[in-house]
Design a binder for these strands. Structure first.
Length: 569
RNA sequence: UGGGGCGUCGGCAAGCGGUAAGCCAGCAGAUUUUGGAUCUGCCACUCCCAGGUUCGAAUCCUGGCGCCCCAGCCA
C-alpha cells in the first residue's frame, strides 16, 4: 500500500506573551541573546496532550530563537518515580518531533551540588534542622488566613544544624523525624514562604541514585538550582507555580548563583477528557482502560496508538495559544487538526463497517473485474489502485433504508445510486428475515454503461456509496472510539458522583465483522487510511496483523447527514 | 479583615489610548464519483459591572462582582 503523503509543515506560531518576553530579551541582548529552555517532567506518569503544549512551547521557543531546550527529569521523589516512565517520556517527546540532543539531564544528577547548596544556606543561617512531626508542622504552619508560628528548633546554631544535617544524610534518623527547612517568614501571606521544607528523610532506593541518599530535596529547593546549573534563561511552568516564584527567587538570591526567570502560563484543559495525572493513573490502575496507551486516553502514547499524527498535535498546540486564563478547549478543535492533516495525507480505501449484502442480479455470476480507484484525490502522487468487483457486494447497512425520510438520498427501493468507482445500481427488491423483518439482502440491477461511475447519458444520482466485493472482501476488526466522557467537563463533579461516572459507555465499540477491500491485507501496523465516507482509521500497532487487520477509528469525517439526524430527532 | 492569578463572540484567542484580527463550532449558498474536501457569504455598535480621566478607553484610574490556585516531609 502507498505510504501516506508528507505532513503539513508547522506554520508560524501566533504571538503569545511568553514569546513576546523572550523576543524582547533577545532583542535587548539579555543573557547574551541566548535562549535556553527546559522541559522538566517528573517521571511518575505518561505524558499527555497537556504536556505537549508545554513541550511545543519550550522546544518551539528554542528552535525559533536558535537556542536549545533541555529535557530534564525532575526526579526528586523516589517513592513515585520509575524507569518505565522516563523511557516513555523520552519516546513521546521524540515522537512529537523534538530533539534534546546531548541535553538530557536528571535533577538527581545534581544531588551532590544541591547538598552543598543546602550546607551553604545552613552556614549562612538561612536554614535549620527541624524536629517537628508532620502533625506539628501542619499546626505551626497556620492557615490561609492566620499566620504560622515559628518552630522551636528554628534558632539552633549553624554548627548544630550542620551536624544534624550531616547526620540526616548519614542515615542516623528514621523517615519523618527531621527535615531541613529554610528560615524565611512564618507570617507570610504566601504559605510557601513559611519556612518551607528543603530536605526530607526517605530511606528509599532511587531509580537512578540507588541507595546513595536517604535524604531527598524538595521540588522548590531543586528546580531553581537545576535551572541555574543548566543556565536556563526562561523557566516556563504552569500557573499553579506562580505562588512558588518568590521561593524560587529566594533560594537563588540567598545562594547568590545565576538566576533564571520563571514565567507561568495556563495549563491545558480539553472538553470530554481528563488531563490530571492523578485521574489518568486511576483510569489505568483501576482498569477503566487497557493501559496508558489505551486509544481513548489523552496520553501521547494513547493518541499515537489511536492514530493521531505528531503534526496534528503540534498544530493543535499552535492553534490554542498560550495565555494565563483558565480555559476549556473544545475537543472539536483537536479533531479538526487531525482531519486537516489526514485529509491531505491518508490514502483512501473502502471498508464496510456494518455489512449488508447486495446482489446484482443482472451481473453475470462467477464473473469479476478490476476497477480503478484513486488513492488520494488530495495528493495525486499517491496514484491509483485496482479494486475487484463482482456480483455480490457489501454496502454499509446505514446506506440502505426501506422507508426513508425525504432527506435520505442513499439506496432505497426503486432508487438508483452510484457505487464508487464502479457502476450505477438500482434497488429492485429486498429479502427480509421472516422472523425479525430485518432486511438481510438487497437485490439490484446495474447499468453496464456506467462503468467507472459516470453515466454516458448524463444521468445523475444523488448518492455515491462505498462497497466491497463479497468474494474478495477481507474480514477486519474495527474499534470505534467516541468521546471518552459524556460530560464536557468531567472535572465538574456533582455531589455523590465521581469523574469515572461520566465515562461514556460507548467510548469503545468493537466491530468484529467488518469487510474491507483486499489491499488492506498488507496494511502495516500504525498506517493510517481514510475509509471513504466513514472516517480515518489506523491499523493498530499492537493487534493488527497482515491478513488480519485491526483498525482504530481515529476520528469520523465531518458528516452533515449525521448532524441532520441528530438535530432532527 | 491571608496571598497569588484571571475575566474580549457558543469554545480558543489577537489587541498594549485612536474607534473589536484570526481559528474552531454554527448558519446560508456554490461545487463535488466521499452528505468528505474545496470555495463564497453571515456570525461581538461591543470587550464582567459601575463610575472617572481623555477630543477619543477593551486598553489608563477608582470601586464593585465573578472564577481559578495555595495550608504535602508531592511535583
Amino acid at each position: 500500500m502507498k505510504t501516506e503523503a508528507p505532513g503539513n509543515p508547522t506554520l508560524n506560531p501566533p504571538p503569545n506573551f511568553i514569546r513576546a518576553i523572550v523576543a524582547e530579551d533577545v532583542k535587548n541582548g539579555k543573557n547574551d541573546g541566548k535562549v535556553i529552555t527546559r522541559f522538566p517532567p517528573e517521571p511518575n506518569g505518561y505524558l499527555h496532550i497537556g504536556h505537549a503544549k508545554s513541550i511545543c512551547l519550550n522546544f518551539g521557543l528554542a528552535q525559533e530563537f536558535k537556542g536549545r531546550c533541555n529535557l530534564r527529569f525532575d526526579d526528586t521523589n523516589p517513592s513515585k518515580e520509575e524507569q518505565e516512565y522516563v523511557d516513555s517520556i523520552m519516546e513521546d517527546v521524540r515522537w512529537l518531533g523534538f530533539d534534546w540532543g546531548e541535553h538530557l539531564y536528571y535533577a538527581s544528577d545534581y544531588f551532590d551540588m544541591l547538598y552543598e547548596f543546602a550546607e551553604d544556606l545552613i552556614k549562612k543561617g538561612r536554614a535549620f534542622v527541624c524536629d517537628l512531626t508532620f502533625e506539628q508542622m501542619r499546626e505551626y504552619r497556620g492557615t490561609l488566613t492566620e499566620p504560622g508560628k515559628e518552630s522551636p528548633f528554628r534558632n539552633r546554631t549553624a554548627d548544630e544544624n550542620l551536624d544534624l544535617f550531616r547526620r540526616m544524610r548519614a542515615g542516623e534518623f528514621p523517615d519523618g523525624t527531621k527535615t531541613l527547612r529554610a528560615k524565611i517568614d512564618m507570617s507570610s501571606g504566601n504559605v510557601n514562604m513559611r519556612d518551607p521544607v528543603m530536605y526530607r528523610i526517605k530511606h528509599e532506593e532511587h531509580h537512578r541514585s540507588g541507595n546513595k541518599w536517604c535524604i531527598y530535596p524538595m521540588y522548590d529547593f531543586t528546580h531553581g538550582e537545576s535551572d541555574s546549573i543548566e543556565g536556563i534563561t526562561h523557566s516556563i511552568c504552569t500557573m499553579e507555580y506562580e505562588d512558588h516564584r518568590p521561593l524560587y527567587d529566594w533560594y537563588l538570591d540567598e545562594l547568590g548563583i545565576y538566576h533564571p526567570r520563571q514565567y507561568e502560563f495556563a495549563r491545558l484543559n480539553i472538553s470530554h477528557t481528563v488531563l490530571s495525572k492523578r485521574r489518568l493513573l486511576k483510569l489505568v490502575t483501576e482498569k477503566y482502560v487497557s493501559g496508558w496507551s489505551d486509544p481513548r486516553m489523552p496520553t501521547l502514547a494513547g493518541m499515537r496508538r489511536r492514530g493521531y499524527t505528531p503534526e496534528a498535535i503540534r498544530r493543535f498546540c499552535e492553534l490554542i495559544g498560550v495565555g494565563k486564563k483558565d480555559s476549556l478547549v473544545d475537543m472539536g478543535m483537536l479533531e479538526f487538526c487531525v482531519r486537516e492533516d489526514l485529509n491531505k495525507r491518508a490514502p483512501r480505501v473502502m471498508g464496510v463497517l456494518r455489512p449488508l449484502k447486495v446482489v446484482i442480479d443482472n451481473y453475470p455470476a462467477g464473473q469479476g473485474e478490476l476497477l480503478d480507484a484513486i488513492n488520494n484525490p488530495e495528493y495525486p502522487d499517491a496514484g491509483s489502485r485496482k479494486i475487484p468487483f463482482s456480483r455480490e457486494i457489501y454496502i454499509e447497512r446505514e446506506d440502505f433504508m426501506e422507508d426513508p425520510p425525504k432527506q435520505f438520498y442513499r439506496l432505497t427501493p426503486g432508487r438508483e445510486v452510484r457505487l464508487r468507482y464502479a457502476y450505477f445500481i438500482k434497488c429492485e427488491s429486498v429479502v427480509k428475515d421472516p422472523a425479525t423483518g430485518e432486511v438481510t439482502e438487497v437485490h439490484c440491477t446495474y447499468d453496464p454503461a456506467t462503468r467507472g461511475g459516470d453515466a454516458p447519458d448524463g444521468r445523475k444520482v444523488k448518492a455515491t456509496l462505498h462497497w466491497v466485493s463479497a468474494a474478495h472482501a477481507l474480514k477486519a476488526e474495527v474499534r470505534l472510539y467516541e468521546s471518552f466522557f459524556t460530560k464536557a467537563n468531567p472535572n465538574e463533579i456533582e455531589d455523590g458522583k465521581e469523574f469515572t461516572d461520566y465515562i461514556n459507555p460507548e467510548s469503545l465499540v468493537v466491530l468484529k465483522s467488518c469487510m474491507v477491500e483486499p489491499s488492506l491485507a498488507e496494511a502495516q501496523p500504525g498506517s493510517r487510511y481514510q475509509f471513504e465516507r466513514m472516517g480515518y482509521f489506523c491499523a493498530d500497532i499492537a493487534d493488527s496483523k497482515p491478513g488480519a487487520p485491526v483498525f482504530n477509528r481515529i476520528v469520523t469525517l465531518k458528516d452533515d447527514w449525521v448532524k441532520f439526524q441528530k438535530g432532527g430527532k
